[in-house]
């Protein structure tokens, strides 16, 4: 079974990553592990026919992509109408875009009153707890802190079996406080190693999702790759024309060992390795992407 989505057009010679070879394929997963598909806010008219347990829809990195409150509502309603459970993904946001994000959440809460909402912004988390207490709060990848760059000596050390627990904030009392105070149901994370680096002896972990194959690495102030063909000096991120739908750039680091994908205001690392999930692990969901989406 393959994932079929509207594939954005190749943009003027830029290598669009993930157009075929090595795309996230539905490899076997352990029993009890859900498989979710992240579709962002792409059109929903051609959806995968595969055995996906859940749909992730929304905007993980960029509130400017939302466009209008009406579009926010339309995307949420379209996702909710697909016949599978939906998780709404919300981006970090500054004040100008806050109403758009809240419109999406409000619509989602109306359509799926006890649905899951992924938050990538502390303010949105605070407000969701206050205004939409029925929604299940999920801590997004932008708020869950873990080392992700393979150039990190810590990551290299962890791969060699040292200090794996130091890769994430899971063992920190400060993080535990956030989990309890905000009643976080789930944490979204990246698969940085073949086995997720849980700290030893750490109890009370929430359910976790792993995103594959695009490991989020960094977020930028503006759309670097997408803006390369934009004339003038305007900031693309504030004059969004959704160039990121089709304009990505690949940067090979370290002699091609690391494949970086620059998409809009985010940078991803492509990692086709499939994570190993031990029985009884807090990881009970894989979130698959065909393309790195915002």
């Amino acid at each position: 079974m393959d994932v079929v989505l509207d594939t954005p057009p190749v943009f003027q010679g830029f290598d669009v990553a993930g157009t075929g070879r090595g795309a996230a394929s539905p490899a076997p997963v352990p029993p009890g592990v859900q498989r979710a598909l992240h579709v962002g806010d792409l059109p929903f008219r051609v959806l995968p026919s595969g055995p996906f347990d859940r749909l992730y829809a929304g905007w993980e990195f960029c509130a400017a992509r939302i466009g209008t409150s009406q579009r926010a509502r339309d995307v949420v309603r379209a996702a909710a109408g697909q016949g599978v459970p939906v998780t709404l993904v919300t981006p970090p946001t500054r004040n100008p875009h806050l109403p758009l994000v809240m419109a999406a959440i409000e619509t989602f809460a109306a359509v799926v009153p006890e649905g899951e909402v992924v938050v990538n912004d502390w303010g949105v988390l605070h407000e969701v707890r206050r205004a939409f207490p029925g929604l299940a709060r999920v801590l997004g990848r932008l708020l869950f802190r873990m080392h992700r760059d393979p150039a990190s000596p810590l990551l290299a050390g962890a791969a060699a079996g040292r200090r794996a627990g130091g890769l994430t904030q899971l063992g920190s009392p400060a993080f535990q406080w956030v989990l309890q105070e905000y009643a976080i149901r789930r944490v979204e994370a990246d698969a940085v190693l073949p086995e997720f680096p849980f700290p030893e002896g750490c109890a009370g972990l929430p359910a976790m999702s792993l995103h594959v194959p695009f490991r989020y690495l960094t977020q930028t102030f503006s759309c670097r790759a997408a803006g390369l063909n934009r004339p003038g000096t305007a900031l693309p991120i504030d004059h969004c024309q959704r160039e990121c739908d089709g304009r990505m750039a690949r940067v090979d680091r370290r002699g091609g060992k690391l494949r970086e994908l620059h998409v809009g205001n985010a940078v991803f690392l492509r990692d086709d390795g499939f994570p190993s999930i031990a029985p009884g692990s807090p990881i009970d969901r894989l979130v698959l992407r065909r393309l790195p989406l915002l």
Partner: peptide, 15 residues
């Protein structure tokens, strides 16, 4: 690094 982008986040940190 605390990522305070908006009014709600300011309110959170203030609280």
């Amino acid at each position: 690094v605390g990522l305070c982008h908006n009014d709600h986040a300011v309110a959170m940190y203030r609280d």
